[in-house]
Design a protein around this nucleic acid. Sequence first.
DNA 1: CGCGGGTTTGAGCCTACTCAACAGATGTGG
DNA 2: CCACATCTGTTGAGTAGGCTCAAACCCGCG
Lengths: 247, 247
Amino acid sequence: MKSLTSAFMLRLERHAELTTTEREIFERLEKDSVSRKKRSPVLDPSRADARIAIMKSGWAVSRATSVSGQSTITQIFMPGDIVGLADLGFSLPPHDVQMQTDGAVCLIDRRTLSQLGHDHPRLWSLLLSMASLEEVALRDRLHTITRLSAEDRLIHFILSMKSRAAQLTDQPSDRFPLHMSQKDIGDALGLTDIYVNRLMRKLSSTGQIDVARPYIRIIDRDGWTKRVGYKDRYANLDTSWIASAAS
Amino acid sequence: MKSLTSAFMLRLERHAELTTTEREIFERLEKDSVSRKKRSPVLDPSRADARIAIMKSGWAVSRATSVSGQSTITQIFMPGDIVGLADLGFSLPPHDVQMQTDGAVCLIDRRTLSQLGHDHPRLWSLLLSMASLEEVALRDRLHTITRLSAEDRLIHFILSMKSRAAQLTDQPSDRFPLHMSQKDIGDALGLTDIYVNRLMRKLSSTGQIDVARPYIRIIDRDGWTKRVGYKDRYANLDTSWIASAAS
DNA sequence: CGCGGGTTTGAGCCTACTCAACAGATGTGG
DNA sequence: CCACATCTGTTGAGTAGGCTCAAACCCGCG
């Protein structure tokens, strides 16, 4: 079961039956990985065409920065996620992606990907489906940020991080690692680090979470889910419409 | 020049050379259109598999709604846009899409799309590129909403609507139609209608915009662009990495 | 031991919200 | 063609949620 060592394969297989040929192709994509230190850029600016990466291990975040120096974390990448999928249409990376912890990534250049997709059309459908997951989660986050109170935003965020952590293991529990400082959480939610701190204190002092950095435990997940109207977009990817593999 | 009647084709050809075969395929996708009245759903719930639509004319918006009844406009669709591209991975539509003006749409079901993509792999690359445009614009909006003042948010929004309007015409000007009430604008920006109103009044009384509903004219676009750090993501789609069409 | 990154707490303030009322426009049914 | 309802825009007054500024504290690390 060599393929189980790869979070990316694990995720793909969770959603769709792969042929042995396809499995070989995806495995080849992950053959060479390079390690990356915390805070270093995921994509190598010197390799202009290597603009896609599969996260092998570690976390990364994508940030948008404004003139005033304020920044927003627009995406959080965990093992098995694909970095740069949403940037395919751009000649220059629109937002920059940095490692959030130490880790390793597999770089893929776009022409290789394009060629692979040409030979194996189902690859595109799968990638597009995965991109669509990202985007829907992003739209959910947009909604929570614009319309929920700071406390509910934080709760929604913790729930979504828990969902994503659950994808990476077969024994999900309500305890999971959150490799982000309170300032980072603020950058993801549009709050100040100070206010995030007050909220976290409040949640833990009222017994809603247990914090033991970097781990966090959600005490009443169902209650929270109902309270903020959380929907787990990651759990069910529908790939039934994709044409079955040729032969 | 029959193809010029289609905003969708116009947009595709702006970004990539199409072969005659490909052109025929895309034209066929748009063959049958159905008209839709303002405020009616774009996708027909009775046709469960028809989950993609190309906007033929009119505007549509996608909304996320929360338990409290608050809603956020997560996407705005104009002629030539593809509705439902980002929802491909879901068995049920995650957010609902309604017409914002009267108009017409072409419904496409997912299996048809999948089959087409199987026969013409470049289709997927193009769709993924277009989806990536959407997503990057969405991330920009997320950033402006989380980190900019209400006034700058509104300015950023008007600039982005202008960019999109510009895609639909060959003679772009700083005057363009905005088919949204102040409440809708608020739903897109995370503001109340009342506050949007105050801001609009301020912008027009200080000579920054001219309003003649539904048209709006930006007076100093360069100044605004610099002020809020606006980047026009729609102007340049990079498709150079896509493998050229077979034969 | 000093330093830097992250966390914690206090005090005061401002941006954008709420509530309320009205004017204009638009539409709709009789 | 009018009467009425509904939607949209406008303005005022008061409020509060999350911000800013400031200062400690904790901990790992060189």
